[in-house]
C-alpha cells in the first residue's frame, strides 16, 4: 500500500465530515484547476475511499478482530466456567459428571465457611484499597503537580521499578520483614511495639505494597490531566490550597482514583499466594477456589465459589460505572 501522501486532492473546502470522495476513480471531469494531479486509482485508494464513505464497515473492521478474540477466548471460557458450577464431580475418579445440579451453589450460599471467608476477603480487599489510595494520593499529587519535570521523570521510574522485582520475591521479602526476628521488629522494639507477625494484618500490608504502583499510576495520570490553569483560576478566585484540592482537584481525579481501586480491589479479591506466604493460618476466597480446583480437583465447586468474586466485581463495576472510572483504568 504505497501511496503518495503528499498529493493533495479534491480539497473542497468542507471543514469537517468525511470528504465526500468521487466514486472510486471514475472522475474524469473537473480536473483540478491548478493542475495538481489527482491521485492514482490503486486498489488501496479505492479501499480507503470506500472505508471513509462507510463508517459502519470501518467500525466492523476495527471491532472484528478484538471481539473475535475476547468473545472466543474470554466470554466462552467464562460462560463454560459458570455452567460447570452446575455440574458435579465423581469424587474418586475425578471425572466431571455433566448432570445439572444446584448442590454446589447451595453449598456455597449456605455454608458458613464460605460466608466467613467471603467477608474476610472483602474486608482485606477493602482495607488494601483504602490504604493504597491513601498512600497513592499524596505521591501521585506530588508527582503530577509539584515536582519539576525532571523530578517527575525520576519519580515515575522510582514507582515503576519495583514492579519488576517479581511478585513472589517481594512477598517473601515481606515475610522476612514481618518475621518475629525481622527488620520491623528490630525497628519497632525500641518503641515498645511489635511486628504484627503472620496473619491478616500482614496480608493487608503485603498486598497493599504489591498493588501500590498499580494504584499510583492511574491516579497520577488522572491528576496530570487536571489543567494547571484551572488550579490557578481557583487560586485567583481566592481558593485556598485545601479547598482547591477538595473542590477542584478531587472531583476531577475521582474517576482515576476509582480506576486505581479496581486494580487493588480485584487483585486482592482473588489472591491466594500472598496470604499463603504471610497470612499465617488464614485463608481467603482465592485459596478456597485454588484448593478446590488444584487440590480437590472439584472444578464444579470451585466454579461455584468463583461466582462470589464475580458477583462482587460486577456489583462494584456497576456501582462505579457512572463515575466514568471505567474509562480511566
Amino acid at each position: 500500500m504505497t501511496m503518495n501522501a503528499t498529493a493533495p486532492a479534491s480539497a473542497r473546502g468542507e471543514a469537517s465530515g468525511p470528504p465526500d470522495p468521487d466514486p472510486a476513480g471514475s472522475a474524469t471531469g473537473g480536473a483540478p484547476k491548478r493542475g495538481i494531479p489527482r491521485p492514482k486509482s490503486t486498489p488501496a485508494r479505492r479501499g480507503s475511499v470506500f472505508l471513509s464513505a462507510h463508517p459502519r464497515v470501518r467500525l466492523g473492521f476495527l471491532l472484528a478482530a478484538p471481539l473475535f478474540w475476547l468473545g472466543l477466548v474470554y466470554v466462552v471460557a467464562l460462560a463454560a466456567l459458570l455452567v460447570t458450577a452446575f455440574w458435579s464431580v465423581n469424587s474418586f475418579t475425578g471425572e466431571i459428571t455433566t448432570e445439572w445440579t444446584l448442590d454446589n451453589v447451595i453449598t456455597v450460599l449456605t455454608g458458613s465457611l464460605y460466608q466467613t471467608v467471603t467477608f474476610r476477603t472483602i474486608g482485606v480487599a477493602l482495607l488494601v484499597t483504602i490504604i493504597d489510595v491513601a498512600l497513592a494520593l499524596p505521591i501521585a499529587f506530588y508527582m503530577a503537580k509539584v515536582a519539576s519535570p525532571r523530578a517527575r521523570r525520576i519519580l515515575v521510574i522510582a514507582v515503576l521499578m519495583p514492579l519488576w522485582a517479581s511478585y513472589l520475591v517481594k512477598a517473601y521479602a515481606w515475610r522476612s520483614v514481618l518475621s518475629q526476628d525481622g527488620i520491623l521488629e528490630w525497628v519497632l522494639a525500641p518503641f515498645g511495639l511489635h511486628t504484627p507477625g503472620y496473619g491478616l494484618p500482614a496480608t493487608v500490608i503485603t498486598l497493599s505494597y504489591l498493588w501500590l504502583p498499580y494504584v499510583i499510576l492511574p491516579i497520577f495520570a488522572g491528576l496530570e490531566r487536571v489543567p494547571d490553569s484551572l488550579l490557578e483560576a481557583s487560586a485567583d478566585l481566592g481558593g485556598k490550597t485545601w479547598p482547591t484540592i477538595r473542590h477542584v482537584v478531587f472531583p476531577m481525579a475521582l474517576p482515576a482514583i476509582i480506576a486505581g481501586t479496581i486494580f487493588s480491589f480485584s487483585l486482592s479479591l482473588g489472591d491466594y499466594i500472598t496470604v499463603n506466604i504471610v497470612g499465617g493460618a488464614s485463608q481467603m476466597l482465592g485459596n478456597l477456589v485454588y484448593t478446590n480446583v488444584g487440590a480437590a480437583n472439584n472444578l464444579p465447586l470451585a466454579s461455584a465459589i468463583a461466582l462470589i468474586p464475580i458477583a462482587i466485581i460486577f456489583g462494584y463495576l456497576a456501582l462505579v460505572r457512572r463515575t466514568g472510572a471505567l474509562d480511566n483504568l
Partner: peptide, 22 residues
C-alpha cells in the same frame, strides 16, 4: 487450629519459620 501460627506446604516457608522462631 486455635494454636496454629501457620500451615506450611513449601519448605522454604517452613525453614524460615523455624529459623526465626515464628
Amino acid at each position: 487450629r486455635e494454636s496454629v501460627g501457620e500451615y506450611w506446604s513449601d519448605y522454604l516457608k517452613e525453614i524460615q519459620a523455624f529459623e526465626t522462631g515464628d
